[in-house]
Design a protein around this nucleic acid. Structure first.
Lengths: 88, 88
DNA sequence: TCCGCTATGTATAATTG
DNA sequence: TCAATTATACATAGCGG
C-alpha cells in the first residue's frame, strides 16, 4: 500500500523502521478499535517497540482482558454463553 | 474499503457481524504480524468475540509479553535503553 | 527533522456461484 | 448458506515542504 511494494521482513534502516513503526502502529490500533466497536468484541493489544517502549490499546481495560485471557486459557470449556457478551 | 462505506458502530445484524468479525480479525492479525516482523517489535493481541471465543496472536509468547507489560506498567522508568532491544 | 500529501497497494464490503 | 470474487475505500510508502 503505498508508492512501492514492500517485503515483509525486518527493515534494516533504523530511521525507516521507526517511521514505519509509527505509521503502522497507528493503523493497527485504529483497526483494533474498529473491530471492537463493529463486532462488539473485547480487544487487547500490546506492542513493544524495538526501543522497548510500550504502546497498548484495550477496548475495556487491559487488566480485565488479561484476566479473562488467563481464565479462558485455564478453563478449556471457555465462556461460550451469550450472556457473557460485553455490555462494555 | 469495499464496495460501500461503513460507519464505525456496532453491527446490528448478527450474521453480518460474525462475517465482518472473521474478515477483520484475519486482517488485524496479519497486520500485527507484519508490524512485529517489519519493525522488530514485540506484539501481543488478544481478541474475544461477542460469543466469548478467544483468538490470540503473539510475536513471541503471550505469557512473556504480559509479564513484560506488567513490569513496564509497574516501573514508570520503562526500559528505554537500546540494549533491551529484542533479540527475540 | 518531522509533518503532511499523494499515488499506489491492500484489505474488505458487497456481490455472485 | 457459505466461500470465492470483484470493485472500492482505506492505509500507507515515498516524496515534498
Amino acid at each position: 500500500m503505498g508508492r512501492g511494494k514492500i517485503e515483509i521482513k525486518r527493515i534494516d534502516n533504523a530511521t525507516s523502521r521507526q517511521v514505519t513503526f509509527s505509521k503502522r502502529r497507528n493503523g493497527l490500533f485504529k483497526k483494533a478499535r474498529e473491530l471492537s466497536i463493529l463486532c462488539d468484541a473485547e480487544v487487547g493489544l500490546l506492542v513493544f517497540s524495538s526501543t522497548g517502549r510500550l504502546y497498548d490499546f484495550a477496548s475495556s481495560s487491559m487488566k480485565s482482558i488479561i484476566e479473562r485471557y488467563n481464565e479462558t486459557k485455564e478453563d478449556p470449556h471457555q465462556t461460550m454463553n451469550a450472556s457473557s457478551e460485553a455490555k462494555v
